[in-house]
Design a protein around this nucleic acid. Structure first.
Lengths: 110, 110
DNA sequence: CACTTGGTTAAGCATATGCTTAAGTATCGT
DNA sequence: ACGATACTTAAGCATATGCTTAACCAAGTG
């Protein structure tokens, strides 16, 4: 419970729920309406809308309403942000392994 | 609140907290003890241990206790699993773009 | 215009989460 | 043996999360 809520918090939080991941999975195959997103889920429509709000708040999904149907789609740049965080950690690790390699090579030489 | 909790749920949930991400970030630079992990965080030790339990339950972190110090480290294969989920979604998307491209090329030809 | 479709709003509730403090329990150094 | 170190356990509490139902509204359809 911190005072600051970062975009990354919201994204990982959004992805932490299986229903929301099903929604993202569906949207990764193209835009969809709210009721299309609801179809595979065994919960009330308002519940789906609440999940959608979490996804939108995280920036992972955006939507526009035309007439009475709201069409949702993934924001790929946002999803990239989550992926990048993980990638950056691995880079850290690889840098460390490199330094270790350098050190060992130095030992060898000396 | 579903009846099934998958590893992916636990991983994204684990990464959704800034304190836990700080812990993972620290561990991405090499193994650390519990109190080392606690150092940058402004909370009690028990709170840190609870975060650590979340990270361990998710599989992202593992630890062994030797003497009185518990040493923690990242399970890189587990972190890969989270990354892969995101990657798979993008693959979905690219497949879709490919099909769209094929379709448009077909239109052109016909 | 009535009816259906697609979504929205609001209120309420059970459980989960993120802390806290207080009180342990081992190990290590002297 | 004694104190300090490095956790560990337990209890409690405030807030957040994930649903529900009921009621509502606005846009298409016959």
């Amino acid at each position: 419970m911190l005072n600051q809520v970062t975009p990354l918090d919201l994204m990982f939080q959004a992805l932490a729920d299986p229903s929301r991941r099903i929604m993202v999975e569906r949207l990764s195959r193209g835009p969809a309406s709210v009721s299309e997103l609801a179809k595979p889920l065994t919960m009330s429509l308002p519940a789906v809308v609440q999940h959608l709000q979490v996804l939108e708040a995280s920036g992972l999904v955006r939507s526009e309403k035309v007439g009475r149907v709201r069409t949702c789609h993934i924001d790929w740049a946002a999803l990239q942000t989550a992926e990048d965080w993980i990638l950056d950690r691995r880079k850290n690790w690889e840098r460390r392994l490199d330094r270790l390699g350098d050190f060992l090579a130095e030992q060898e030489k000396g």
